[in-house]
Design a protein around this nucleic acid. Structure first.
Lengths: 144, 144
DNA sequence: CAGTATCCATGTGGATACTG
DNA sequence: CAGTATCCACATGGATACTG
C-alpha cells in the first residue's frame, strides 16, 4: 500500500470539493485555465527557452522544432497576456523584439517538474499497464 | 527577484535539454503524454471521485456534471489502460462495474497539487496582467 | 524582422439511438 | 446498467502569402 502523505483525498470526499481546487475556488483565475495554458504543446518549451536569456521571434522559430509561425505568435501572445513572458520592442529598422520568461513563469516551470518527476517514476509502470491492457484486448478480439 | 531554488534553468540551457525532460528522455512513456492524459477536462475529476471509494459508471455520470457518456467511457478506458484506474466487473444482471483510482493515480493527483498551488499563489497576478494587457490593446485600438 | 490574415485538414467532443 | 456506434459542430493547428 502507498503510505505517502497524500493530503487531498482525506479532505476531498466529493467531486464538488475537487472542483473547488481544480475548476474554480476563490481565485480570479481558476487552476483549470492554468493547466490549459501550459498543457499546450509549445508553452513550456517557450518558457524554458526564454528562461536564461531573452530570445527573438525568429530565434524561437528556429529553436522550437516543428512550431508554425501562427502557433508561435498565438502562444507568445497568450503567455505575454498572462504575465508569463516579457516582450520588449526595440524600435529599429528592421524591428527587433525580445521575449523573456518572468519569474512567475520560472516558478510555474518548477511546479511542472513535479509532474515530470511522477512521470519518470511511473513511466515504466504505465508502459507495463498498457502492454497488459492491449494484450487483453487482443485476446478478447481473437476469442470472438 | 525570485530567490527560490529553481534547479532546472541552471541545467537547461537549450531547448533540446528541455525536450529531454518534457518530450522524450529514456522513459518508455514520455512526460508529454502524461500531461496530455491529465490535461483533459475530465481525467482529474474522475481520479478524485474514485479516490476514496469505488464508483459505478452511472454514479460517475451523475457526479461529474456536464460529462457526456462518450467522454466518460473514453476517459475511463484511457485511465484504465494506463493503470490509473482499476475496473472491476461483477457478472450480475444487470451488470455492475466499479472503478477505483490506483495508488499511482493518487500520487499523480498529489503532483497536480503543486500546479494548483502555483495557481493559487499567482492567480491574482495573472488576472492583473491580463487586465493590463487588455487595457493596452483597447487603447491601441482606439488610437487607430 | 516580426508578425497578420486566410484557407484548409484534422481532431475533439456533444447528443443520442441502440444493445448485451 | 454499462456501455457502443454514429452523426455532427466546433476548435485546434499547419501552411503560407502578404505587410509595416
Amino acid at each position: 500500500m502507498y503510505q505517502g502523505n497524500i493530503a487531498v483525498p482525506e479532505q476531498l470526499r466529493t467531486i464538488e470539493d475537487a472542483e473547488c481546487l481544480i475548476e474554480s475556488g476563490e481565485c480570479p483565475i481558476p487552476p483549470r485555465e492554468i493547466l490549459d495554458r501550459i498543457a499546450g504543446k509549445w508553452a513550456i518549451l517557450i518558457i524554458v527557452s526564454t528562461a536564461r536569456a531573452p530570445r527573438r521571434f525568429t530565434e524561437l522559430e528556429r529553436l522550437i522544432e516543428g512550431i508554425s509561425r501562427r502557433m508561435l505568435t498565438l502562444t507568445l501572445r497568450n503567455l505575454e497576456r498572462d504575465g508569463l513572458l516579457e516582450r520588449t520592442v526595440y524600435p529599429t529598422v528592421p524591428p527587433k523584439v525580445e521575449y523573456r520568461a518572468t519569474e512567475m513563469a520560472l516558478e510555474l516551470y518548477e511546479a511542472m517538474l513535479t509532474l515530470t518527476n511522477w512521470s519518470r517514476k511511473y513511466s515504466s509502470a504505465v508502459a507495463e499497464a498498457r502492454r497488459r491492457y492491449d494484450e487483453r484486448q487482443a485476446a478478447e478480439c481473437d476469442r470472438l
